[in-house]
Simulated scan of single mutants.
Amino acid sequence: MRVAFVSNVVYPFVKGGAEKRIHEIGTRLAADGHEVTVYGRQFWDGPRVATYEGITLHGVAPAQELYTDDRRSITEAIDFSARLLPDLRRNIDDHDIVVASVFPYFPVLASKLGTLGTDTPLVTTWHEVWLDYWDGYLGRLAPFGKVTERLTAYTPHDPIAVSGVTADRLAQIGPARDEIDVVPNGIDVDQIDDTAPATDGFDVLFAGRLIADKNVGLLLEAFDRVADGDVTLGIVGDGPERERLEAKARTLENASQISFEGFLEEYDDVLAQMHAADVFASPSTREGFGITYAEAMAADCTVIAADHPESAAGEVIGEAGFVVEPTVDALADVLERALHGERPPTNPVDAAVQYDWDRVTETARDAYRSAIDRT
């Protein structure tokens, strides 16, 4: 296959979940003899078209800031889409399939225009479907976000969702549920297994962006109730909620046993913290997939997550962790049991193997080939 991925940001020059997925799948496809191209902004030094780890990188636009006031920039997405279209259209006969990452949405629409009148199918990868979340994210401009999301969903394409929860939400605004393939996000099981535990680790760990939906405040209160002796909680990550959460932690009885570590630049350092922890707790109520759960399972943590219709945590964890109501009482109860050694019915390490990137790539490859066969 000749596969073209579309993403305004390119890993490892910009590090995030969606671009890492493209890199992990793309490098494995390339190693298996497929031709892989990524169309993105040129965050790398050197020529506009370059080769990196077997993948052809095609810089269709210069590097640009992705956020404005802590929100993804609409003008950046429009600018990238406008610059993408002529390059993709010019080279479309060199590709058997185009795979566009959602979100943002405008590059998907540009990708569709780039494939019109050709036999090259467009596949989209949906990491989340926001629906009413737009109300809190954009306020009075929320209708603009909702219309754009629905327009993208209705654009003729072959959709892939990273979880069943995301697929179900996508089916509410676009394609039928049985038309949506599910290809999960992945982890490098060997890399996690080979990582040594941190020497400055914690008994309980949270890792993620500090935003309201992660409900770290609930975790702080629940931990404070059960923090007997010298048990510790580490909060790894940064975000707009950090200042408020640190202030909240200072008011708690066991404040001295809570540490905010900030953003860890090196991925291995996060994995080392997971290996050192007994419990990984993230009561997030909005997860399109939840990669940290899979990583923590592979590191043999007892994983605790929140049961919520907008979160795929329960789907990812299954019987290899604990999924509870997002309340302080429920979280404190299971946290206390986990700290006293209670383990889930299924071994977390064994369950995590299903998310290894090698397996995920096989599933993605099959979905891409099916899309080509349908044209």
Rank of each mutant, 00 (worst) to 15 (best):
4 A>W: 07
7 S>D: 07
11 Y>Q: 06
13 F>K: 01
14 V>C: 08
15 K>S: 14
19 E>G: 05
19 E>K: 02
20 K>V: 06
21 R>S: 14
26 G>F: 07
29 L>R: 02
33 G>Y: 08
40 G>H: 07
46 G>A: 08
52 Y>R: 11
52 Y>N: 06
53 E>P: 02
60 V>R: 07
66 L>E: 12
71 R>L: 14
74 I>V: 15
74 I>H: 08
77 A>H: 07
83 R>P: 11
87 D>F: 10
89 R>A: 15
92 I>H: 10
94 D>P: 02
94 D>H: 08
95 H>V: 03
96 D>E: 13
111 S>C: 02
120 T>F: 10
121 P>W: 09
122 L>S: 05
126 W>R: 05
129 V>A: 06
130 W>T: 05
141 L>C: 07
142 A>S: 15
143 P>K: 08
151 L>G: 03
158 D>T: 14
160 I>P: 04
161 A>I: 15
164 G>Q: 08
166 T>E: 14
167 A>Q: 12
167 A>T: 12
168 D>H: 10
170 L>A: 15
171 A>C: 15
174 G>M: 11
181 D>F: 11
190 D>Y: 10
208 G>D: 11
210 L>P: 04
212 A>E: 15
213 D>T: 15
215 N>G: 13
215 N>S: 15
215 N>V: 06
218 L>R: 00
220 L>P: 08
221 E>W: 09
225 R>Y: 00
226 V>T: 06
227 A>V: 12
229 G>Q: 04
229 G>A: 03
237 G>M: 12
238 D>A: 02
241 E>G: 12
244 R>V: 15
246 E>M: 01
247 A>I: 13
248 K>D: 10
248 K>Q: 10
249 A>Y: 08
251 T>S: 13
252 L>D: 06
254 N>H: 15
263 F>N: 13
264 L>F: 10
270 V>W: 09
280 F>M: 06
282 S>V: 00
286 R>G: 03
287 E>F: 06
297 M>P: 03
300 D>Y: 05
302 T>Q: 02
306 A>K: 01
307 D>M: 00
309 P>W: 13
311 S>N: 10
311 S>L: 13
313 A>M: 08
316 V>R: 01
316 V>N: 03
320 A>L: 02
322 F>A: 02
322 F>G: 02
324 V>W: 00
327 T>W: 00
329 D>Y: 09
336 E>V: 00
337 R>Q: 03
341 G>P: 01
345 P>E: 05
348 P>I: 09
362 E>M: 00
363 T>K: 06
371 A>M: 07
371 A>D: 13
374 R>V: 12
